[in-house]
Design a protein around this nucleic acid. Structure first.
Lengths: 341, 341
DNA sequence: TATATTTGGTTAAACGATTAATTATTCTTT
DNA sequence: AAAGAATAATTAATCGTTTAACCAAATATA
């Protein structure tokens, strides 16, 4: 592999010092620092030699890498994949590269990834945190490291985060089912003990109680690790346990739960919208291809991504961190705004 | 933000030189370079101070960054998202970080991203190339830059690539429909002029000809840019143009085409497996949730990712590049191996 | 006893880019 | 004509790490 072209190479070629080349290539040649013709010559040689600046050297010297780290729970989940997509597109406009990584919901992995990204001298982080990742995040906050939590947050932690109003979103999802005349609405959510999920549960519970339909037994907690097995067990219990009255509606609190749930319903011959009404949190390509399209709660993914980037870059350039909560509103795929009472 | 802990900090704390600390922290203290107790002391202080090595500095000095760049066509497509996922998981085992980026099938963007990643001093690249990205890729090849193409390749270019046998996969997909007694099988593929897609077309054409079913009018080319409109136009033409006999089978050559196509079929009330048989290239969550599950050609995504990483790292560490083609076999979701004649 | 060898370190240069401080030249201004 | 200002460049230090080359003291070898 050929040696890379450095500023020094150009300098020698043109017969000038490193500094001059650097000034020109950073467009600091205006204020009477370098002559027009010299600047032109340098630029020409740089182009001819196909010069590419060395980010490592620049980053080392400048103390910043123009790189931001993104940590999501699972890049193969379309919700996160779309977030990642928009974050990257938008960050690029500001000259930032994005390193995308996965935790797979593992706290240990979060800690490890954090180390790796910090070693890479990322200028800031956008993190979808894990259930017990708080200590690791807290350390960063203490160090005043530029950081934005996304989708989830730790309420006790003074930090920046971009999320949606999960409570309202959940309420409107349940109301949708109630409007459909459902009386026994089950909730399938993750056991994860973070407010975004708790808020979804609270939205469900409050709405059900208000409608006089609440029933503890209809709340089903799924463990992310054993999602497939858990869902089968719980659905079997709901539908085929003689002791129970069957549900007439299900609210799936994430798209991954919904996907597994719908698949099993399908397997067992339970027809959506005929035998049961369903609504999901987040979208999946699958939803509008089913026999009867599945309604869902749509998070404003592009806006969430952009805002996370905005908030983060603001921290980075200002060098000062003011904890802030940015809360967006989701809406139903059937187009009713969620925050309408 | 607090200043970062460097090797120098540790050296001062322990009362020793930079070099000694570096040796210990890189586990080069065995061969009688540093005493046991000193090594222990240094490691302890490093841990206490929460030292994290600076990748930029190390990369600059060593001339490599332990980072590889991944360029895919669209991270929000589950096929690429899954590839990215496995590539990252596997690369990590070798101590490599992965920077994931998107071209959106744009050649201009490919060129730009290439520059950005090279600036970041990535040690190698895994690239899903764009239709006319050949000149850019060719430049890298000439420079002997470690590089693996993935999913697609340029046949005239001597390089490493990891792909599947698209011809065989396509043949078995078409045979599947023929076995289902389909006579008029349409092909929906992208206009993209790269061999992976051409091979799929050739597989279709050859199989149809062999069965005496070939008909030019059943081949429909979709432009990635205007995918939604194109699909509607072509499906309308096939199904609602009085002049045409209706098809009884469709082979969608990618999952994105399939998704749009199925959605439109659904919209128009054309029932899959009742009015028409369908098979797709690549999987989507949607496929097995539909009224009747859609069969598909499954690429061995984890293996493709792993092999790409293996081949790339091999190039990087050996420092020498031997062009090679790694071809894997896809199989049908109905479990018949594709390469069985 | 004189000489190798091992043990346990240190020094200093290098990677490539940035930038404050400095110098040298030319042009204004009074 | 002399001083000040503007122009156009250079020098050298710096970021954090690695590593070849060097050195000194202790130990082994003949």
């Amino acid at each position: 592999m050929k040696k890379r072209i450095s500023i020094k190479t150009i300098a020698q070629e043109v017969g000038v010092s490193n500094a001059t080349v650097s000034l020109v290539l950073n467009n600091k040649d205006k204020e009477g620092r370098v002559s027009r013709e010299m600047a032109g010559k340098i630029r020409k040689v740089a182009k001819d030699l196909n010069y590419e600046p060395n980010h490592l050297a620049r980053g080392l010297r400048m103390g910043k890498s123009q790189t931001i780290g993104l940590i999501v729970a699972d890049i193969s989940n379309p919700f996160f994949a779309n977030l990642a997509f928009h974050i990257q597109e938008y960050a690029e406009k500001f000259g930032y590269s994005v390193i995308i990584t996965n935790t797979n919901e593992s706290d240990a992995k979060l800690v490890k990834i954090l180390d790796v990204l910090i070693s890479h001298q990322v200028d800031g982080l956008i993190v979808v945190p894990t259930e017990h990742g708080k200590p690791a995040i807290e350390e960063l906050v203490k160090k005043n490291f530029p950081l934005v939590l996304l989708d989830r947050w730790y309420p006790e932690l003074q930090t920046c985060y971009v999320v949606i109003d999960n409570y309202q979103a959940s309420k409107s999802a349940v109301r949708y089912l109630i409007n459909k005349k459902c009386k026994r609405i089950a909730l399938f959510s993750y056991t994860i003990d973070l407010p975004h999920m708790q808020e979804r549960k609270r939205g469900y519970a409050d709405t059900m109680k208000k409608a006089g339909l609440f029933n503890e037994g209809l709340i089903k907690d799924i463990n992310y690790i054993s999602i497939d097995a858990d869902i089968k067990t719980e659905l079997d219990d709901l539908f085929f346990n003689e002791k129970n009255e069957k549900p007439d509606g299900i609210f799936f609190a994430t798209n991954s739960i919904a996907l597994h749930g719908l698949r099993y319903l399908f397997e067992r011959g339970i027809k959506v919208s005929k035998d049961i009404e369903v609504i999901c949190f987040d979208k999946s390509d699958a939803f509008d291809l089913m026999e009867s399209p599945v309604p869902c709660v749509l998070q404003p993914i592009p806006e969430m991504g952009k805002l996370a980037v905005d908030v983060l870059i603001n921290q980075i350039v200002k060098g000062v961190i003011t904890p802030s909560k940015v809360e967006l509103f989701a809406k139903l795929s059937s187009d009713n705004p969620v925050n309408a009472s």
